[in-house]
Computed example of a mutant assay.
Amino acid sequence: MLSPGPNSACSADSFPDESTVRKALGKVEMRAFHSQLYDWLSGSSGSKSLAVDGKTLKASRDGNGRQIHVLSAITHGDAQPMGDTPVDHKGSEIDEIRPLLDSIDIRGKIVTVDALHSTKDFAAWLKGKEADYVFPMKGNRKKLIDRLDMLNIKENSYSKASTQDRGHGREDKRTLYLMKELPFWLNFPTAEQAFIIERESIIKKSGKVRREQVYGLTSLKDADAALLLQLNRGHWTVENKMFYVRDVTFNEDRSSIRSGSFPHLMITLRNVIMGLFKKKGRLQIAKTIRSCLYGKDTDLGYHFSKI
């Protein structure tokens, strides 16, 4: 797809002009393109946990003038992109998350999602795929939260774990309490354990304290509180190591590309570029892009030629 120049695979003077790139990409069959790129990346991550979340592109529009929304999957920890799919809007993620995960081998993996997807049906679907889950429960599951509240998880917990972090002008403490042997009346058949996370944030400048708690369920039978707290925090890999990089380094939210499949295609390319860099141990994305542009990283050019 991309061929290296004679001197440097990443040399800027070897790139075709914009109109040529647009014409070539406009002829791409998106399904095959998407499948080949992510299949190529999929074997490079050893992570057993996978985060799925959606993002709206602020500047892009589809043919009906609606903002483009894309659902993406990324591994925890090493932040390797595993797949993405366009959706109509945030609410329609529910219809598209299963086809997205069907395109990925999730057997033996732990899937984390936001509260929108924390349903019995989706939990049963994941278990049918031989995958596990960690689900947060928020206001959209009020009846279930009421039943979880009746469990008195904190008082009946058998495992507890805490973390403390400082940064961005605040100090955060998170504590997770874990309970097993759930009663039948909870009415969530695949759940093996229930948990509650208490978070306390102190704003250093003002001294203001903010407290919140989140309930959750997991199909992991033998996980302790420390692992579940790690998985809960690991879910934000998709925000911190994918969406943030696409916004800041690739200036994604300012992209006005809007015709046909181009917005989705460009998201896939950004994800795959990040995945390629990480696959080769280049964790500083912006620095690696500069090295590539100035012809200082010929090794990456070789791998681009193999995509």
Rank of each mutant, 00 (worst) to 15 (best):
A24W: 14
G216D: 06
L227H: 07
K296M: 09
E29C: 10
I74A: 09
K23A: 04
D95S: 14
A12R: 13
S11W: 05
V245Y: 03
T237R: 12
K296A: 06
K180P: 04
E93R: 05
R233L: 13
L101W: 03
S261Y: 15
L151M: 07
E252I: 09
E29F: 07
I97T: 06
V214L: 13
I285Q: 03
H264P: 04
M242Q: 15
P16W: 02
E252N: 09
G275D: 00
G63P: 08
R233N: 12
K58Q: 11
M82P: 00
D149A: 15
S14R: 05
K180N: 09
S255Q: 01
Q164R: 15
R246L: 10
G216F: 09
A59L: 00
I203D: 13
S35F: 02
A286V: 04
G77S: 12
D121S: 15
K173F: 01
I307M: 14
V214P: 07
G43V: 10
D84Y: 02
D39K: 14
S201H: 00
V248Y: 07
D17Y: 11
L100D: 08
E200S: 01
E198I: 13
I106C: 02
V238Y: 10
K27H: 13
I97D: 02
R170H: 02
K142L: 15
K296N: 05
Q164A: 10
H34D: 04
A32P: 04
I104P: 00
H34C: 05
R270C: 08
Y177S: 11
G54V: 07
L186F: 09
F195N: 05
K48M: 05
G139D: 14
F122R: 14
G5S: 13
K279G: 11
K142M: 14
R174A: 14
M1F: 04
M137K: 15
Q230W: 06
K296I: 03
D121T: 15
G54M: 03
P4T: 02
Q67T: 13
G234S: 10
Y133P: 08
K154I: 14
N152W: 09
L300H: 06
G207M: 01
G169T: 08
I94M: 12
I257N: 03
G128M: 13
